[in-house]
Write a protein that binds this DNA or RNA. Sequence first.
DNA 1: CGCCACATTGAAGGCAGTCAAAGGTGGTGG
DNA 2: CCACCACCTTTGACTGCCTTCAATGTGGCG
Lengths: 225, 225
Amino acid sequence: MYKKFFLKKCPLFSDLDEKELIKIETISILKRIRKGSTIFREEEDASGFFIVNSGRVKIYKISKTGKERILFIAGPSDIFAEAAIFSGGTYPAYANALANSELLYIPKREFIELLKENPALSFKMLSGLSKIIRRFNSLIEDLSLKGVPARLAKYLLDISLKENSDNFVLDTKKSDIALKLGTVSETLSRILKKFREKRVISIKDKNITVLKQDLLQKIASGFKI
Amino acid sequence: MYKKFFLKKCPLFSDLDEKELIKIETISILKRIRKGSTIFREEEDASGFFIVNSGRVKIYKISKTGKERILFIAGPSDIFAEAAIFSGGTYPAYANALANSELLYIPKREFIELLKENPALSFKMLSGLSKIIRRFNSLIEDLSLKGVPARLAKYLLDISLKENSDNFVLDTKKSDIALKLGTVSETLSRILKKFREKRVISIKDKNITVLKQDLLQKIASGFKI
DNA sequence: CGCCACATTGAAGGCAGTCAAAGGTGGTGG
DNA sequence: CCACCACCTTTGACTGCCTTCAATGTGGCG
């Protein structure tokens, strides 16, 4: 069936056998979410977690002053809110669809039942959760050790690495990239301009070419340009 | 036996029964670490994880510029480096003893064997890991949404809550507190001075009294004094 | 007493956020 | 097909927080 195809692509379930997959498939629910819709809010009761089939979902916090901080943008085959279901009964952040999205919803109650029956699944999820810890760890490092130019440099290098090319097109609007980097669009704009002036990159709209990868790497590790 | 007593206090194992505890006890090794000693370095092979019996251990990163950023100070019954053993084969940070410390070391290989034989253990650990994720989540929130005065206010409130008193003595030197709050001692000094001037707290050396808890709470959530 | 580590204070400078305004750019409806 | 609108992006000016550097203060201990 349709859903199983997506389950297989999710690292959390990638090692499961056919029988286990079918079980998860049966308890999961396919949800179509319209762009801009809120999937859940912070403090809301966590009734389950999600896997992204298609589209993009932003997971974010809002400060008392109304400022938004994106923790994570979940794309196809990413899962989110999975930590919520073990400890605490509420979601720790907001989730909102950046595009029309197709999500697989796995209800907490049924999934926990499943875990109890399939202990091997627990072990696999341990590794999944510790990957999240790694990601948070690196996010903390980024936030506390580096300034915005370094975070941006790292972000660009990451894309360049993933696309395996010095030339790539941003798939996110710049104001969202800014939020993801923990800054605002104005600052992002200025720093991109600086990078361009220093001939570190060339940029035309969303089209970016890395001109000096070595320098960009130095900037990513804190070097001031 | 001696070791089991500490295992029980650790949230990760709090749900385990007697038999499971004994098993972990048998594979664990008691280590005495002298103040100032390095327990492991970033990128080192992760051969296992630790539980603090007594003493204090700082987990920190070092930036390219040599700046130190404390991620976490582990005290009695805290565990650290547990995420390292599931994903990635190396430690993601440095660990150094702030005081003479007694640690319980749980070797990775044996522990994984144990998990395979005792699937229920995995399930219980899931909840432990997700608690850690919650903690990271709140750390990220602190770092990215708030300024130093707010972080300091929260830090003081946390201690006050833990000690269950408006009056307490700092057990850490101020320059280390500064690092933990992601700032430097000069800034910490200035903000403490400001708090004192505004009569939010009174402070004499390491002795602090919270005078206006409500105001301190407002500061912790972003209010500017 | 004098050293050492830690703490405090002052002055200066930079990074980044906010506010405001002026370009784009794409989509919609007339 | 064009005009308008909404949204995004860019730029400028300003402000404030925090860091850095440097100097001074303080307290413990040999």
